[in-house]
Each structure stands twice: as structure tokens, then as C-alpha cells.
């Protein structure tokens, strides 16, 4: 077990965003998180990555209790995330964007020279090298999403949280992103949790799925098991149908 959350609960004023959710992530696994809008998926990521403190519950990453760690400490522990709303550093070049991750993300101190070398490798890996010198704000959606992944990878994480990295992409771009995620999994020793509305991609990529609805975990299992569950069908009926 590489990452574990127990009894995770997040109460916002007047709203229970996450209620008593247990989850775990195994070595080299892709865990998919699905659920309708507002189900608490991003909230779960915010708890795991230290952006919100859980109202109750605790989180263990690689045998360390990280429940009260700060975001920058959690990256250094080996858990990197992307944001649902991709936020490249607008005024920094693509290379500098990735260097922020490669210089500050790892648990040890990395020099600018070494950070640049790693960043260039990662840009090659996500096929964004040709844009290395462009400013963050000049990227299109697809490039932004790739940059978001590249920055997270640059910290050399053991666990990667991907929050809707396929959203907003055309079907072709989306398929290319699926290929990239697969490549991350095969070539790097990284376990992945991904939140996605694109069902097809989730089914293809995930080893296991967790389904959230109104902050509760309503199902968990292999993709085939989960889509059979009555609760899941009910939660998704009348919901927007996803690609």
C-alpha cells in the first residue's frame, strides 16, 4: 500500500463535501475516481495533497502520516498533483514552468543546472520540447494539460493525482493523452489516481474504480464490477452522458 486515506471527511460551512471515505492506492496501480459534478472528487484530491485539512480522518503516504502536512511538504514526500483548472505560470517559459517542479519538487535540494536537465527530459517525455522557450500563457489547451502533467512529473513522484486531465480536449487529443498516461505508468514507477468524466478512458486505464456521490463512496471495484452496481447506475441516470 503506497497511499491510504481512512475515514476522510470534509465539512465546508453548510456542506458535507466528503463523508467518511476510505480509499487506498497500491503500488503501480491506476485508481479511477468517478462521480457526478460536486461529488467530492476534487475535494478528495485537495485533502490528499494538503490543500485542505480533513475535518476527520487521516492520510498515510509511504508509511508516513501526512494528514497535517503542507502541500509543498507532500510533494517532497512523493505525491504530486495536477489542477482541474490548469494553471501554467503565465509569465514563465514552459521550461521554467517544469523547472519549478524539478528544482523544488524532489525531497532533496536540486541545483538549477540539474533541474534544467531533468525538465528538458520531462518535456521530451510529454512531447512538449518544441515549446520549451514559449511563455506559459501562449499554450493551447492541449499543451497546457501536457505542461500540467510535466510539472507534476518533474518532482519525480511515487504517486500522481490527475484531476480531469482529459476534460476540454477533442477526442483525438484525449486519445493522445490516454497514451501518455499509459506511458507514464509503463515507463515510470508511478501509481496514479485519476478523476475523469470521460468514462471510456476511465474504463480503459483504471485497474480499480471508486465511485463518489454526494461525498460518499457508493462503489468500489474493477471497472466491470462497478458499472454493474445499482447505486452507480442510479447516480448516473439522468446525469449528462459522457463520451
Amino acid at each position: 500500500m503506497i497511499l491510504q486515506g481512512k475515514g476522510l471527511t470534509k465539512q465546508f460551512t453548510g456542506l458535507l463535501a466528503l463523508a467518511d471515505v476510505d480509499m487506498c492506492l497500491r503500488e503501480n496501480e491506476v485508481l479511477g475516481i468517478m462521480g457526478p459534478n460536486g461529488a467530492g472528487k476534487t475535494t478528495l484530491f485537495n485533502l490528499l495533497s494538503g490543500y485542505h485539512r480533513p475535518t476527520r480522518g487521516n492520510i498515510t503516504l509511504l508509511q508516513t502520516d501526512i494528514t497535517f502536512f503542507k502541500p509543498y511538504q507532500i510533494v517532497k514526500m512523493g505525491l504530486a498533483r495536477t489542477f482541474q483548472l490548469v494553471r501554467p505560470f503565465q509569465e514563465l517559459s514552459v521550461l521554467q514552468n517544469v523547472m519549478v517542479g524539478s528544482v523544488f519538487g524532489p525531497g532533496r535540494k536540486v541545483s538549477m543546472a540539474e533541474g534544467e536537465k531533468v525538465a528538458l527530459e520531462i518535456l521530451e517525455f510529454v512531447e512538449l520540447s518544441h515549446r520549451a522557450r514559449a511563455l506559459g500563457k501562449t499554450l493551447n489547451i492541449q499543451e497546457r494539460k501536457r505542461l500540467e502533467i510535466a510539472r507534476a512529473l518533474a518532482s519525480n513522484p511515487r504517486v500522481l493525482l490527475l484531476d480531469e486531465v482529459l476534460a476540454g480536449l477533442t477526442p483525438t487529443e484525449s486519445q493522445e493523452a490516454v497514451v501518455l498516461i499509459r506511458k507514464i505508468r509503463e515507463e515510470k514507477n508511478i501509481s496514479i489516481i485519476m478523476v475523469e468524466h470521460v468514462m471510456k478512458a476511465l474504463m480503459e486505464l483504471s485497474d480499480r474504480l471508486v465511485v463518489l456521490n454526494y461525498g460518499r463512496k457508493i462503489a468500489e471495484g474493477t471497472p466491470d464490477e462497478v458499472i454493474q452496481e445499482k447505486e452507480v447506475i442510479k447516480a448516473y441516470l439522468g446525469e449528462k452522458t459522457s463520451a
Binding site: 503542507k70 502541500p71 510533494v75
Partner: peptide
């Protein structure tokens, strides 16, 4: 926020 997510204190 993004800076912190990448390890910047």
C-alpha cells in the same frame, strides 16, 4: 497555489 503544489515553500 500551483507553486506550492510543485514544492515551493
Amino acid at each position: 497555489d500551483a507553486a506550492e503544489a510543485l514544492g515551493v515553500n
